[in-house]
Design a protein around this nucleic acid. Structure first.
Lengths: 217, 217
DNA sequence: TCGGAAACGGGGATCGTTTTTCCGTTTCCT
DNA sequence: AGGAAACGGAAAAACGATCCCCGTTTCCGA
């Protein structure tokens, strides 16, 4: 009987104190912003500073950088799924649902999901894998509805959408361009216009799902 | 009148040895690639390694990081201007010229021009300023021809194009996704499709030139 | 071909930054 | 109110980048 008992479920073994939960959430939120702004090598002290907590608190909650990034990723995916489901349920027009989701995904800092594609991650992690799958499903639903309605070109897939939105919304390094956000909105809109059916070009290569993106490494 | 003036022109005062020029070019090329891949904080040792030279050689040629980045920027701008002029001159169709330029700009690692927008640069630098202006002119020419031909929407400007292409072509951090290039091509094509006139949406905000982008900081 | 000088490469000292640990103090729960 | 959990700041340790030194190699002109 290996030490399954003590290592299996550390997180919810004991109820966290109220301030501890609050701080933990603050840290994840701050890390999300800092990660997209400063990149994956952002100093953890910077994250702590933005969260308004001491650096020791950060290390108390997350054993290392990888664990923090993992939590940020899970959190962003959960919020993204929520947004996708809401957009699909609430928007009558199929392409309007897609547009709304794209802009909201930008607000949710979907760019923070970059690490999913890189090597920081344990691809076997069940929590991550299931979230990815769920996200794939909810976004696919939006896209397929728009494609069925003849409003969205059919030669693209979830991977195209996610990667392009991620790219377009990443802050330029070293830039704190005021009004850059408005600029980003313009580019997202232009990209969305390019997604409309009937397509006025043919795309080379294959559309890719998220799983394929991760797999091809 | 051979080397009469040694005071006026420090750079070309003495002819560089053959291997020295070769190494210098290698370093600039390696720095261009490394900058887009690893970001503006890439270790200079990494640049030297990629260039296949010792780190001392790098420091011998460039006094510091800023000077190296400056040279990379100048080099990329020069190559980009060349590509823009060629595309305009050689492509009969106005939109085809724009498309060709976009893909070639991606090949030229236009993403390496990010520092232009950040604070690393002396905005008074005459060499840089004149190159920026020239680039603005040559790309404007392509866009205006396409707009006059009714093929390109009129609510965008050079700044939109350059920033969006930069964003779409940046490598994802930590990723050495094989076949990512083909992916990027697809996204550029989608974006280009969104640029076509007649536009199927209205863009918020104003189109921006490169100078405005730099100015608003 | 040869001598001298320019350029090179690797290694290591120095410096700044990031991570990690420690401990006295504060906050929360019962 | 008491005790434990959590906190913050700051110092110590670890890390990595920059920069310089010096023996060796490469190029150029005679």
């Amino acid at each position: 009987m290996p030490p399954a008992t003590e290592t299996a479920v550390p997180p919810r073994a004991v109820r966290l104190r109220a301030d501890a939960t609050r701080n933990r959430e603050r840290i994840v939120a701050a890390a999300r912003e800092a990660l997209v702004e400063l990149g994956p090598d952002v100093p953890l002290d910077e994250v702590a500073r933005r969260a308004g907590v001491g650096n020791a608190t950060l290390y108390r909650h997350f054993t290392d950088r990888a664990e923090l990034i993992r939590q940020v990723t899970l959190s962003v995916m959960a919020r993204t799924v929520k947004r996708a489901e809401d957009a699909l349920a609430q928007e009558p027009d199929a392409f309007a649902a897609l547009s709304r989701f794209v802009f909201e995904a930008a607000d949710e800092r979907i760019g923070a999901l970059c690490p999913l594609l890189s090597d920081v991650f344990d691809r076997q992690d069940p929590a991550v894998a299931s979230q990815v799958e769920q996200m794939q499903r909810s976004i696919s639903a939006i896209m397929e509805r728009a494609q069925s309605a003849g409003q969205l070109r059919t030669d693209i897939a979830v991977g195209d959408l996610m990667v392009a939105v991620t790219q377009l919304t990443r802050p330029l390094p070293g830039t704190c361009c005021a009004g850059f956000d408005r600029f980003v909105r313009r580019h997202l809109q232009l990209f969305l216009d390019g997604l409309r059916a009937p397509a006025c070009s043919v795309l080379a290569g294959d559309a890719a799902t998220l799983e394929e993106l991760q797999a091809r490494q």
